[in-house]
């Protein structure tokens, strides 16, 4: 019998299936659990959770603590944190992982503070060190920081979608389901009334085959237009770095990186991007990486497959017209 507690994933459901990030975390938790010789378990709260439970078991969970109740249909901070803390105090997990989703980003710190334990934010890597402590990797200042929580348990971390691969499903896999009663609580001081979907204008960046990401090097709003133009020519998803958001060229939702989206397109083209870790960790999964930057010494060129040392303001219009010309010539052939 291992002296460690189980590895947990606080899972989420959306549209009758488990969130992808929850499954990715179950995949990672499975690995960690096997190394520690413990169970990989998941906690799932919500209403109408049958589909999601099957997903979690098929992805590698040995046991699912299930609170399936209409009162839990919407994320309710007080009730959700109460249930998770209650379970954690009873079952003493070694590790708790949560997705860096909107829910995870609020719930994780609430739970960690109540459990009097540490919480690492938006990790880009998780591994066990020699003492079987969880090493949580976070990009910072052009390098990586490893965070550990030496004494307090559980060790907690949030991880964004796309950091870990989605595990293969095994529909035959069996696991245990433990029903969790919903505790009676007084009138809550905070209540989610509804969750409203807004029409999303652009396609999901996470699903784009090609992504063009612009950074400070675009220089100005006009420069940004050239980035947009290249995107249109390629039919690519338009993404950006933090400085482009700060400059007001691009919306926050299109930011890639540690505190933004994690993507793994087939082709990533960074234009006027400096290679800052916080951004680059968001695209490590790309198959082909290309960068355009006017500084041949830019750190971005150490992290890509193809480099173009040109000022993107001059290069992009040339490239866009060449792409148009190429398309025209192809049309002529057909």
């Amino acid at each position: 019998m291992s002296s460690f507690g189980p590895v947990w994933v606080i899972a989420e459901q959306s549209e009758c299936a488990a969130e992808i990030v929850s499954l990715q975390l179950v995949g990672k938790a499975r690995q960690l659990a096997e190394q520690l010789g413990v169970n990989c378990e998941s906690v799932l709260l919500g209403s109408n959770l049958g589909g999601a439970v099957r997903d979690l078991l098929a992805s590698g969970a040995d046991r699912v603590y299930l609170a399936d109740d209409p009162r839990l249909e919407l994320y309710q901070p007080a009730l959700y944190s109460e249930i998770i803390c209650m379970l954690a105090e009873k079952w003493k997990p070694e590790i708790i992982l949560m997705g860096s989703t909107f829910m995870g980003r609020e719930l994780a710190p609430l739970v960690a503070a109540r459990l009097r334990t540490g919480l690492a934010a938006h990790c880009t890597g998780l591994r066990l060190d020699r003492d079987n402590r969880l090493e949580q990797l976070i990009p910072a200042y052009g390098g990586l920081m490893s965070i550990v929580c030496p004494e307090k348990r559980p060790q907690m971390a949030t991880v964004a979608r796309g950091v870990f691969a989605t595990p293969a499903r095994d529909a035959q896999r069996k696991g245990e389901i433990v029903a969790v009663p919903v505790p009676e609580m007084g009138e809550p001081t905070v209540r989610t009334l509804e969750i409203v979907r807004e029409p999303v204008s652009d396609g999901q960046l996470e699903d784009a085959r090609v992504i063009v990401s612009g950074g400070a090097g675009a220089g100005s709003a006009e420069g940004w237009e050239a980035v947009r133009e290249l995107c249109r020519e390629l039919g690519a998803g338009l993404a950006c770095t933090r400085p482009a958001v700060d400059a007001g060229w691009a919306p926050l939702e299109s930011m890639i990186g540690q505190s933004g989206k994690m993507v793994s397109p087939e082709v990533y083209i960074g234009v006027g991007v400096s290679g800052e870790q916080q951004h680059m960790v968001g695209v490590v999964g790309a198959k082909l990486m290309i960068a355009v930057n006017n500084d041949p010494k830019s750190p971005v060129f150490e992290q890509v497959d193809l480099g173009v040392a040109e000022d993107c303001r001059e290069f992009l219009p040339v490239l866009a017209s060449k792409i148009r010309a190429y398309r025209e010539s192809r049309k002529a052939c057909v």
């Binding site: 009097r116 060190d129 910072a140 052009g142 390098g143 990586l144 920081m145 490893s146 550990v148 004494e151």
Partner: peptide, 10 residues
């Protein structure tokens, strides 16, 4: 509860 155990420039 948490400490930075290492910084690397990888």
């Amino acid at each position: 509860p948490t400490i930075v155990s290492e910084m690397s420039t990888v």
